[in-house]
Amino acid sequence: MLVLHLFGGPYITVAGERQEIPAGSQRLLVLTALHRGRVDRHFAAGLLWPIGNDQRAGGNLRSAIWRLRGVGVDVIRTDNVSIFLRDEVEVDAQFASEWARRMIDGTCVGPDVSLFPWFDDALHLLPGWYDDWAIIAREQLRQRVLHAIEGLSRRFCEAGRLAEGVEAAMTVVCAEPLRESAQRVLIEAHLAEGNVGEARRAFEEYRTCVRTELGVDPSPALTRLVSLSSPRALRAVAHR
C-alpha cells in the first residue's frame, strides 16, 4: 500500500515503511494531493513559484519532480499539460474528507461510526503552512470534519454508546469552544446519559465564554434546552 500522509507530514509510507519527501518537493506534492485530480502544469508552477517568469517557474516545477524521483518517491505522473498522483496512491486527508462526507449525507456504514485517532490531525491540517491554497484546504477540511463529528456524536447516542457520544462532542468543543452546535451536541449527550448537572455545567461554561469573547448570550434554543432539563422542569414532566 502506498500512502501519502498529510497528517503529521507530509511523508510517504510504502508497505508501512516511511519515506521522507525532499523539502523542495513537498509543496508540489501536497498541492497535487489536495486537488486529487489533474493539475495544470502552468497553474501549479505559477502558484508555487510566483516570483520570476514562467520559464523559471517551469524549471522549478521540473526540478521538484526530479527530486522526488531521485529519492525513490515515484508518486507523481506528468504529461505535457498536467501533473497528477498515481492511481494507487492513497491520501489520508482524502480518506478523512470522504468519511466526513458520508457522515454528513447519511451514507455512512457501520465502521464509520467510530472514534478515529486522526480527528485532531484532520482539524489542524498542515499546521505552519501559510500558502493561501493550503489555508483554504485546511479550513474546508476542518469545517467538514467538525460537522461530521457532531453527527457522529448523535449517532453514538442513538445507538446507546453514550460515553463515546460525549467524547465525540468534546472533540469538537475543544477544537471550537465558541461553536454553539458543538455545545448543543455535548449537552444533548450529557442529558442522554442522565447527567443533568454535567449538561448545566457545560452550558454555564459556554455562556461565560461567549459573553467574554463575543459579548453575546447563547441562543434562546440552547438556553431553553438546558432550562427544560432543570430538576424542577424534570419533576414537572414526571408528574404530568
Rank of each mutant, 00 (worst) to 15 (best):
R142E: 12
S114D: 06
S25L: 09
E213W: 14
P231L: 12
Q183I: 00
E164G: 08
R38E: 05
H190S: 13
Q55S: 14
H124W: 01
Y206M: 02
L222G: 06
L214F: 10
F203T: 02
I104Y: 09
R155W: 01
S25F: 10
I187W: 01
L123Q: 08
V196L: 08
Q183E: 06
F119P: 00
R155I: 02
F84A: 04
L125M: 14
A93Y: 03
V237W: 04
L31C: 04
V109S: 12
L28W: 07
I187Q: 02
C174H: 07
A33R: 03
R144V: 05
V109F: 11
V113H: 08
V145N: 03
L29M: 01
V89A: 08
D54T: 12
P231W: 10
D92G: 08
L29Q: 02
G59C: 04
F156V: 00
S82G: 09
L4F: 01
L141D: 00
L31W: 01
L225Y: 13
R62Y: 14
A182H: 03
G194N: 11
L123R: 06
R179L: 04
H190M: 13
L48S: 08
A93L: 01
G8E: 00
W133I: 04
S63I: 15
A168C: 13
E188G: 09
T32M: 02
C108I: 07
P50K: 12
Q143R: 15
E17W: 10
M170G: 11
W49H: 02
R27M: 06
R240P: 12
L222V: 09
V71M: 12
A202K: 07
